[in-house]
């Protein structure tokens, strides 16, 4: 059964220096408040995993939480570059960042293998690209039945996966809907998991197309209203596009960024925008 707790307690209990941590969300339901709590608690040397690292990973990398990044697309969607990520890669500020780079199809299959308890996944992918030359975790594999040569990628099994969902009941069963990305796979692949939710409800009313993660498959659940802001939570609030656009200027300059971090992360309560 999932433990119902607070965000600060959950991060303190579940996220440790040196962990491989995945905060997943595909534009929708991004666990931003949890990422900022990791910054506040000063966790270091994380290998961050995510298909689409966006501004919360930019914040975590700029704040010095990460020593590695496993990813397939790192950008500010619709706006441009992630300047803190680029500063880390291009100038090793505030610290060097190891990159392990994949395609979306490869990352999605790595999570699916992790959730399935398999050591690797097979796909048609990466062939002819320069990615295998730089990413050790991509290999050719021959089909034992047809002899066809395909691509294998190893399972991803993060120490901790963190996602955000619309709601949970008081036993810790989690319900999410809309674009659910790779969140189920990320939670089931992880050794420990934390779900932040918009609200707790007495009863989870079934919704067409909604996904339920049963309480016994999740380690901890914490209520964090607006915990996905500036991304969105369908049925609760819209995407704050202005924030994404403003992040470009905030993140370009190291001093502006650290000033923002002091005011908005270290100086703010849990979940505040």
């Amino acid at each position: 059964m999932a433990e119902l707790t607070t965000l600060a307690e959950a991060v303190a209990a579940l996220v440790r220096d040196g962990d491989m941590v995945a905060l997943e969300g595909f534009t929708h339901l991004i666990p931003v408040a949890a990422g900022q709590e990791i910054i506040r608690q000063g966790v270091r040397d994380l290998t961050l995993v995510r298909m689409t690292p966006d501004i919360v990973y930019d914040q975590m990398i700029g704040a010095g939480c990460a020593s590695g990044l496993v990813f397939s697309w790192g950008g500010n969607p619709g706006v441009g570059s992630l300047h803190r990520l680029r500063d880390a890669v291009e100038h090793e500020w505030p610290a060097p960042l190891r990159l392990e780079e994949h395609s979306h199809a490869g990352m999605a299959n790595r999570y699916a293998a992790g959730a399935s308890g398999l050591p690797f996944a097979v796909l048609r992918g990466y062939v002819g690209t320069d990615l295998p030359r730089h990413t050790a975790n991509i290999a050719a594999i021959t089909c034992p039945f047809t002899g066809e040569v395909l691509t294998a990628v190893p399972a991803l099994n993060p120490d901790v996966s963190i996602i955000h969902a619309q709601r949970a009941d008081r036993r810790g069963n989690v319900q999410l809907w809309g674009i659910t990305g790779v969140q189920k796979e990320a939670v089931l692949a992880a050794r420990r998991s934390l779900v932040t939710v918009e609200e707790f409800v007495d009863t989870l009313e079934p919704r067409p197309g909604a996904m339920v993660l049963p309480t016994w498959a999740v380690t901890a659940v914490a209520a964090v209203p607006r915990g996905a802001h500036p991304s969105y939570a369908q049925g609760y609030y819209e995407r704050d596009n202005t924030y994404y656009q403003e992040w470009d200027a905030i993140s370009r300059d190291r001093d502006t960024f650290t000033g923002w971090l002091d005011r908005h992360v270290f100086g703010s309560a849990v979940g505040a925008p």
Binding site: H28, V79, N109, G178, G181, G209, Y232, E238
Partner: peptide, 22 residues
């Protein structure tokens, strides 16, 4: 603005997981 805006899901014939789409 992004490939995951809410209106895409609200107006879609079907919404599937990312492993499924690929």
């Amino acid at each position: 603005l992004s490939i995951g805006d809410g209106e895409l899901a609200e107006t879609a014939d079907a919404v599937v997981s990312v492993p499924e789409i690929f």
